[in-house]
Write a protein that binds this DNA or RNA. Sequence first.
DNA 1: TACACATTCAACCACATGGTTGAATTATAC
DNA 2: GTATAATTCAACCATGTGGTTGAATGTGTA
Lengths: 128, 128
Amino acid sequence: MVELYTHKIDTVFHALSDATRRHMLRELTRGERTVGQLAEPHAMSLAAASKHIKVLEGAGLVRREIQGRIHLCRLDPGPLATAHEWLSFYEHFWTTRLDALEHLLKQDDARKADQNAKMPPSKPGNDT
Amino acid sequence: MVELYTHKIDTVFHALSDATRRHMLRELTRGERTVGQLAEPHAMSLAAASKHIKVLEGAGLVRREIQGRIHLCRLDPGPLATAHEWLSFYEHFWTTRLDALEHLLKQDDARKADQNAKMPPSKPGNDT
DNA sequence: TACACATTCAACCACATGGTTGAATTATAC
DNA sequence: GTATAATTCAACCATGTGGTTGAATGTGTA
């Protein structure tokens, strides 16, 4: 169970770590695409593109419907939601880090204001 | 610029695609850790763990402060925020997919309700 | 100074990845 | 039924990845 989940998130993040595959995902947000259509914008052989699509499929990000000789691919955003959720665990850390940065900037402002207090002030009152 | 961004998100997703590295990140949410401390829970050599930490560093996920002979690592959640943001683009797709699922379930409920209408009903009124 | 400690470096290995090419498979079209 | 189109398969190649071991580096300590 946990094994399965671990395996899945491994494959999802790995699938996302390649620009070609990310581009294909973007393309699939615009609708269903055949293998050929997905391959077309990329300067590589069809076989190579086919492998990329298989990686996306393996990560559960793409579903394929075979209609005769063409393979229709569509986006399955589920694993993206999983990855998004996984990252959300860390949301607290980057927001508090931004808070800390903001705090430092305020300190800096206060320091500047303090320096200005020793000089003839030009504009008052924004040191809250 | 875009190159840089692309390279970065590549390395971030790649860094996240390994369970050992994800575990190290989790550990770092609990506070600063030395290389040895990060390596300890994992059944591998220090050199191997050191390489993992370098991958995290390369993705900008970990910062290192060298204090004498020990290297203190801390989490830098910034790139996680970037990845989270990247995934958010697709949020619409998984939520509308859930909406569609919900819609299907409602249809199913309606179908069942319709079937039940042909039978003596037992419990009324939850088909909104 | 000599030793122990924390970490990296370098060389190596097995296997995965991302690409190629040419042949095979399968379905449509003439 | 034969050619053509869409896709995969198989073999191959260069490079990357994740691991090992043993030596090297640099820092604290007796």
